[in-house]
Design a protein around this nucleic acid. Structure first.
Lengths: 207, 207
DNA sequence: AATAAAATCTACTACTCAGTAGCAAAATAC
DNA sequence: GTATTTTGCTACTGAGTAGTAGATTTTATT
């Protein structure tokens, strides 16, 4: 047992530090963005040296890719663990609410509306793309059901709904409101949900 | 007259080239983004050398600032030239429609949902901020009127409406739809407008 | 305690790119 | 046609940073 347990203990420590690295990465990424985040930043934040960091991730691209994958996995897990009794629209709404709350509490959007650079990088990352496709597949099914139930507009193409929905999870209006309005986080969430599903129009609007 | 006319001729040529530089900048910015755009890129695209480029703009920040200012000015001009007989909601809608069309035809969003780096840079640019405030002021008035008329939801705080509206002008769903859906540009615009004002919800949605 | 192995660090390389010095060529003046 | 000014260019500097080589320390083994 001794050798095996030692190995697994080491592995555990390794995994633990890997998580600390990803935490730091997500954190720095959040307020510096891809290009301004340096590998030294991450190493310093974790309290290790750069070569040690490279023992875990062989490049900056890989590091950021893994951080993004972890965020997507968080979203997939959230969706999986939702109460199965919730209707499709309730699940869709709960997921957006969760994403907005994560962001307001200092987290990263799991689908960044990022620069060309970052988008290209992630598109080349097959592991990341696979996760996205998985998440997308699940949401497609929910959207389709919600449209049939009349809870999402059946006249809109489902692409339009899906892409618009994704955009809401990383809507910059959230940060604007947090910075420049006096609304508290919960109020912001409720308003963003309302805007997402009911739109900006009032009772007399033509649409 | 000779000296004066020569000077103004020179000035004209200078201005002309300045515009060519800003055109190239906007173009490159559109598909490379701030960090990947180099001053050599811009100089090469215009067909001049880097030092010549620096005769016009004393830094990369200034160059990009001026390009962004020109985009905002375009938006302000568009708003100014709108038919005065249009109702507030019609003006608001027309402006979003215009912004979406510009983007679909290969232009830049005049309000980029950009990285922290770019945001900071623009925030430090007083000239840019002044234009933004001017545009914002005009839109605030329109929003307030449209809310009173019941064409925009009077129950939403006007910040929420304004920031959400800005976000729609640079909504990444537009690029997603252009790339991955079979909708043509006009259909995309109509759907985006509908989503903006009427939301994603269908007839049975609780909101 | 001596040795081997693993982990981690310091100090470096290679490269990109913003910004510039100083030269060359063209235009203008006399 | 020569002198002067303007314009533009080539070729450089310096800063920042991804990624690495090789020394050093720590840990495990006998």
């Amino acid at each position: 047992m001794s050798i095996l347990s030692k190995l697994s203990f080491k592995d555990q420590a390794f995994k633990l530090r890997e998580n600390a690295i990803l935490d730091a990465t997500t954190d720095i990424l959040k307020d510096k963005g891809y290009d301004l985040m340096t590998m030294d930043d991450v190493a310093n934040a974790v309290g290790i040296s750069k070569p040690s960091l490279y023992k875990h991730f062989k490049s900056k691209e890989e590091l950021i890719g893994e951080a993004m994958i972890r965020l997507i996995d968080g979203a997939i897990d959230f969706l999986d663990q939702l109460d199965r009794n919730l209707s499709p629209i309730e699940q869709i709404s709960a997921m957006l609410e969760w994403a907005l709350r994560v962001r307001l509490e200092g987290g990263m959007p799991f689908l960044p509306s990022t620069s060309a650079h970052v988008r290209d990088m992630l598109t080349r990352n097959l592991k990341y793309v696979a996760r996205i496709l998985k998440l997308n597949h699940q949401l497609e099914k929910l959207v389709s059901k919600a449209q049939k139930a009349g809870d999402l507009n059946p006249d809109l193409p489902s692409d339009v709904i899906l892409f618009s929905y994704y955009s809401r999870t990383c809507d910059p209006a959230v940060e604007f409101l947090q910075r420049y309005s006096k609304l508290d986080n919960e109020a912001i969430i409720q308003h963003m949900l309302k805007v997402c599903f009911a739109g900006l129009g009032g009772p007399n609007h033509a649409y």
